[in-house]
Design a protein around this nucleic acid. Structure first.
Lengths: 355, 355
DNA sequence: ATCACCGCGGAAAGCGCTTTCCAGCAGGCC
DNA sequence: GGCCTGCTGGAAAGCGCTTTCCGCGGTGAT
C-alpha cells in the first residue's frame, strides 16, 4: 500500500471520498464526454472534488484519452509589434476553442524554430502556427518538412503565416502586391532614384517584397539601375545601418522603401540624427503598419496588413482538421500613404549627396 | 495483441528495433538521468530512434517521472508593449532553462486570470508568473491565494510582477516613487494645477501610482484640491476619454500625468485632435517607458521601468525553488524627462479652459 | 410471465513512459 | 576456489487518467 504524502488529490481520492468507482468519478467530471451519471451522484462527486481541491492531471488525461488542448505558436520576438499582432489573433481563437498556447521565440534562428516544432510535437499539440518568414535553405526546408509531416501523421494540424515553400495551409500576405503598390506610388510622386532597405534575401518575405517593388518600378519605366538595394538585418538596427550606408554612400535616392516597419523605425532614427528631413529630403515607406507608424511625425506611409486577422486565420486553419487539401488564404496588403511620402520636388537634392 | 496502426513510434518500438528492453531504451535516451548504458548499445538505440523518427511523449514522461518543463505566464494583452517587454524577459530565462512557456491573456479579467492559473496547475507547470496589477477584490484574492497555495504544495513556484496583496515572490516596480518623482518634477517646473489620468482604482498599480503622485505633490506644498484625478479604463481608449473629459470640463491643469504610457498615447491623440499643443498648452507625462514614447514628437516624458529585466527576475524567482521565504525584488523606476514636459509659462493659459 | 433492451455503475485494461528491484556475470580478494 | 563487489540489462510496477466491456436491475413489448 502506497502512502499518499501530500501530493495533489487524484481522481481516485475523489472517487473514494464520494464512494464511487474511478470510472464514475471520471464520467461525472467529464460531462459531454462518453456517458452521463445520475445527477444526484454527479453532484456528490463534484462536491468531493471541490472539497479535495482536485485539479485533474492534464498529462494523465492526455495520455489516457489522447486528448490535448494545447497549440504551439512559433514567432520571432514577442516585442516586435508585427508578431505581437499576429499572436494576439492566434491566441484569441485558441482561447475561444479552450486551447492553451505555448509560445516559442526563435529570434530568427532556423535551428530554434525546428527545436520548437519538435518540442511541440513531444507535447502532442493539436496544432502549430508558424509565423515569420521561411528560410531559403534546403536543409531547413527538408528538416521542417519532415517534422511537420510527422506531426500531421500524428493527427496534428499546422499553418504558416507567410510563405515557407512547404506544403501546408498558409496565410499569405500580399507582399509582392503591397510592395508593388509602394513602387508605383513613389514613381507616380515623381521619384526616379529609389533606395530599398532590405533584410537578408534568405528570408522569403524579404525576397517577395523587394521583388514586387523592383518589378513594379521597372514596369513604370524606371530602369532597375536607378534602384539601390541595401541588405541589412531584418531589424531596427538593420534599418539604421541601411540608412547609414545610403547616406554615407552618397545615394542619389529621393525615396526609401524599408521592407518592414521595424527597419523603417531604425532608418528614421538615423535620418533624424543626420539631419535628413522626411519627407522633404527623403520620402520613407515601411511595411506592415504597426501601430507606431501612424503616431510618428510625420506619420509614416506603409503597407497595412491586418495582423490580428492573419493570426486568427492561421490558427483556425491549423485547428480545423478539414479533409480537403491545403488552403492558401490571402491577407490583403493595402498601401497607406501618409505624410512621410511627398511629391519629389525638382529643387530637392538627393539626401546625403556628397556633391 | 494490439496492432499499431500508424501512430507515432513509441519507446517500445525503438526498444524492439534496437533489440533491447524498454528500460534500456529509456536509459539510453535520457543520458544524465539515472544510469548509463554501454556506449555501443546506446548508439544502436539512438540510431533506431532516429530511424523511427521517435518523438518522446512529453505527457507520458511527465506522468511517469513527474518531470515537467513548462511554465505559465499570465498577462493582460500581448500587444501591449508593457507586457510584451516583460514577456520577453520571462521567456528568455524560461528558454535558457529549457522550459516551454504557456501564455494566457486575461484582458484584465480576474476570472480569466484564475482560470489560467487553474489550467496551468492542471498542466503541472513548474512555475507561473503573474504579471499585471492585482485586483482589489477579496473574493479574487482569496480564490487566487488558494490556487497558488495548492500549486506551491504540489511543488510549483510562482512570482508576481507588481503587488498582488498575496504571499509570494514579487518584482515590485517603484510605482509610488516613480510617480512621486513625476509630481515633484512637475511642481518644480512651476505647475500648480495638475491632472491625473488614472485607471480604475481597483487596480493596485493604479492606486500606488496615483497615491505616490498625490502625496509628493502635496509634500511640495501644492494643495490636493489642485489635483484633478480622472478615472478611466487602463487603456488607450481610457486615456483618450480622460483627456476628453479634462478638456470638456474646462480643467485648469497645466500638466497631465497619465498612469501608464498606453493611456498617454490615447490622451495625446485626443489632445492633438483638439489642437492642444504639448508641451506649450499642456505638459504630459506617462509611465513605463514603452519604446514608442521616445519616438513621438515631442518625445514623451515618462518613468522608465526595465520591463525585460522585470520579466527575467520574475521568472527566475518563480523557478528557483529556494528554501527561504518569499522575496521582494524592487524594480527601480527612473524618471525620464523629455520634451513633452516644459516649465510652465505665466502666459500659458490652462488647456481647454472655457473662460 | 418472458424476454429483449436500456440505463448506469464498476472492474480492468491500457496510454507511453520512468524507475525500482533483481538477476547475471566478470573481476578482485582472501 | 569461494565469495563479495560492481556493473549492466531486463522485468515489472506504477504515474493518473479514459474507456471498453460487463453485469445488474428495471421497463416495455409480446
Amino acid at each position: 500500500m502506497r502512502i499518499r504524502r501530500d501530493g495533489p488529490a487524484t481522481l481516485a481520492d475523489v472517487a473514494r471520498a464520494a464512494g464511487v468507482s474511478l470510472a464514475t468519478a471520471s464520467r461525472a467530471l467529464n460531462p459531454g464526454g462518453q456517458r452521463a451519471v445520475r445527477v444526484e451522484l454527479r453532484e456528490r462527486i463534484l462536491r468531493a472534488a471541490d472539497d479535495l481541491r482536485y485539479v485533474p492531471n492534464a498529462h494523465a488525461r492526455a495520455l489516457a484519452g489522447g486528448t490535448t488542448t494545447t497549440v504551439g505558436l512559433v514567432l520571432h520576438d514577442i516585442t516586435d509589434p508585427y508578431f505581437a499582432g499576429i499572436a494576439r489573433g492566434a491566441m484569441a481563437v485558441a482561447g475561444d476553442r479552450g486551447a492553451l498556447v505555448m509560445v516559442g521565440s526563435t529570434f530568427r534562428s532556423p535551428e530554434r524554430e525546428l527545436e520548437f516544432v519538435r518540442t511541440f510535437r513531444a507535447q502532442r499539440v493539436d496544432a502549430v502556427v508558424l509565423t515569420g518568414s521561411g528560410f531559403e535553405d534546403d536543409g531547413y526546408r527538408e528538416a521542417m518538412g519532415e517534422e511537420l509531416a510527422g506531426h500531421r501523421r500524428a493527427g496534428g494540424g499546422y499553418a504558416f503565416v507567410s510563405e515557407h515553400d512547404l506544403p501546408g495551409h498558409v496565410v499569405l500576405p500580399g507582399n509582392g502586391e503591397g510592395a508593388a503598390a509602394v513602387g508605383r506610388a513613389l514613381v507616380e510622386l515623381g521619384h526616379r532614384r529609389l533606395a530599398v532597405a532590405g533584410g537578408p534575401s534568405s528570408l522569403t518575405t524579404v525576397r517577395h517584397r523587394i521583388g514586387g517593388f523592383v518589378r513594379a518600378v521597372e514596369a513604370c519605366g524606371v530602369p532597375s539601375a536607378a534602384i539601390e538595394v541595401v541588405d541589412r538585418p531584418f531589424s531596427e538596427d538593420g534599418g539604421r545601418a541601411a540608412a547609414r550606408e545610403l547616406l554615407d554612400g552618397g545615394s542619389g535616392a529621393t525615396a526609401l522603401f524599408c521592407v518592414s516597419d521595424v527597419m523603417a523605425l531604425g532608418a528614421l532614427e538615423e535620418l533624424a540624427a543626420r539631419g535628413v528631413t522626411v519627407p522633404d529630403d527623403l520620402s520613407v515607406v515601411g511595411f506592415n503598419d504597426i501601430p507606431t507608424m501612424r503616431r510618428l511625425s510625420p506619420p509614416v506611409s506603409t503597407v497595412r496588413l491586418d495582423l490580428e486577422a492573419m493570426g486568427r486565420t492561421a490558427m483556425e486553419l491549423a485547428l480545423d482538421r478539414d479533409a480537403g487539401g491545403f488552403r492558401t488564404v490571402p491577407a490583403p496588403a493595402e498601401l497607406v500613404l501618409r505624410a512621410s511620402t511627398a511629391r519629389v520636388d525638382a529643387a530637392a537634392r538627393p539626401a546625403g549627396g556628397r556633391g
